[in-house]
Amino acid sequence: MSTTTSGIAILGAGIFAKEAHLPALSALGSDSLPLLAVYSRSEKSSRECSAAAAELGLGPAPAIYHDGDPSVNLDALLARPDITAVIVVLPITLQPSVILKALAAGKHVLSEKPVAPDVAGGISLIKAYNEKYKKNLVWRVAENFEAEPGFRAAGELIAAGKIGKVSFFKAVVTNHVDVDNKYYKTPWRTIPDYQGGFLLDGGVHTVGALRTMLPEPLTHLSSFASLNHEHLKPHDTIHAVAKAGSHFHGIVELTFGMPTKSTPASDLFVITGSEGWLSVNFAKADGASVLRLTIKRAVKVEGKPTEEVVEVVDQPARGVEAEFASFFDAIAGKETLNLGDPLEALKDVAFIQAGLNSGGELIDLTKLVSEGK
């Protein structure tokens, strides 16, 4: 896909841009558009990201743009005709305005999750895209859990009836975030100006994975949210009971407020059906990160008691690479997976917003996504 006349820019030069985005572009090789520029609000972080890109072999060091000099600020970058697409990796509350600015400049956009700080903002952003830009420009939301081959494989197995008809599910995410955590140290996370703090920033991953695996969408929830550690304001924990589709339900436990680095052993995701269950966990295989699917099924053998059949499937953990590949395919008009639909990403934000505000009351997620309240 690489050409000499067009390329991409990364807007935002923080931890995830350097540690996830640059390696993903490197892994794609010639299937990626060349990285021509990097923008950050600070010159220092922009230079560091550009140097990291060069060290990874992504071609010549990308041009550096920052807010310290009007001649090389964001507007100057977006005015470049050779940059056809941008990857937005900025603080949550800054992203919507930058997405619109990039679209107005005629650039395709891949923006990091969440789609917006809240549902109402997401609805407004999607409306503006659909009305003004969708005909000619691609905008996708980078939700790497949705793109992970392991979660997609789990969804395909469940849809094919591997565990029978889905009965119930659970998702348990327990994290310890202390004041020395590298993500906590980023100023916009230390004093978040958006709902939920880490629950919004990280919790949408869990909801995105469930959305990818479950055969029907999440429709309702009742939950309680709390703050257990003052440095994780405004909330660090959600416990929710959720309904999906017409007949099944489950529990979702999200906390970034565990008191110790070691956490109780638990499967990350378990989806149970009429004939068995499937769990999904991150693991290591031959030194590489994988998503491990474990399937246990009850098989009735004629003349014998029911037997349990176990199957283990490992899928490489390459969600960021997969979402980039899908985005570049969409730009080229050959998209097949349809990853990163902003409306689907809005459903993830709706779940977190409802989880924060339910207070035990039942919330209709479909209504929330359509009306914003």
Rank of each mutant, 00 (worst) to 15 (best):
Phe169Leu: 02
Thr212Ile: 08
Gly150Asn: 09
Pro117Cys: 11
Gly155Tyr: 04
Leu218Lys: 06
Asn144Leu: 11
His176Cys: 12
Lys165Glu: 14
Thr219Tyr: 03
Pro187Phe: 07
Thr212Met: 04
Ser223Asn: 06
Lys127Asp: 15
His231Arg: 10
Phe248His: 12
Ala147Lys: 08
Pro215Phe: 12
Ala171His: 01
Tyr133Cys: 10
Met213Lys: 13
Ala240Met: 02
His239Ser: 07
Val141Thr: 06
Gly202Asn: 14
Lys127Ile: 02
Ala240Leu: 00
Arg152Ala: 15
Ala120Thr: 12
Val241Leu: 03
Ile158Phe: 10
Thr219Ile: 02
Asp236Ser: 11
Thr212Lys: 07
Ser222His: 05
Asp118Lys: 08
Asn136Ile: 08
Tyr183Glu: 08
Arg152Tyr: 13
Tyr184Gly: 06
Ile126His: 04
His229Leu: 15
His176Phe: 15
Asp236Arg: 03
Glu230Ile: 15
Gly161Lys: 09
Ala153Ile: 10
Lys135Asn: 09
His235Arg: 12
His247Cys: 05
Leu137Met: 02
Thr186Trp: 11
Glu253Gly: 01
Ala142Phe: 03
Val207Ile: 15
Ala240His: 00
Val172Glu: 07
Ala159Glu: 02
Pro187Ser: 05
Arg152Met: 14
Thr190Pro: 14
Lys182Ala: 01
Leu232Trp: 00
Gly164Lys: 12
His247Ser: 11
Thr237His: 13
Val138Pro: 09
His247Ala: 13
Gly202Tyr: 10
Arg152Cys: 15
Val252Asp: 04
Leu210Asn: 02
Pro192Trp: 04
Ser223Lys: 05
Ser246Gly: 15
Ala209Glu: 07
Val119Gln: 02
Ala244Asn: 04
Glu253Phe: 04
Phe145Pro: 04
Ala242Trp: 00
Val179Ser: 15
His249Leu: 10
Val141Glu: 06
Leu254Gln: 00
Ala160Lys: 13
Ala128Phe: 01
Gly164Val: 11
Tyr184Phe: 14
Lys132Glu: 08
Tyr183Ser: 01
Lys182Asn: 02
Thr186Asp: 13
Glu216Thr: 04
Val207Phe: 04
Ala142Lys: 00
Ala160Glu: 09
Pro192Gln: 09
Trp188Glu: 15
Phe151Asp: 10
Phe168Ile: 00
Gly155Trp: 06
Ala159Ser: 09
Ala120Tyr: 08
Asn181Trp: 03
Gly161Trp: 06
Glu143Gly: 05
Ala225Ser: 12
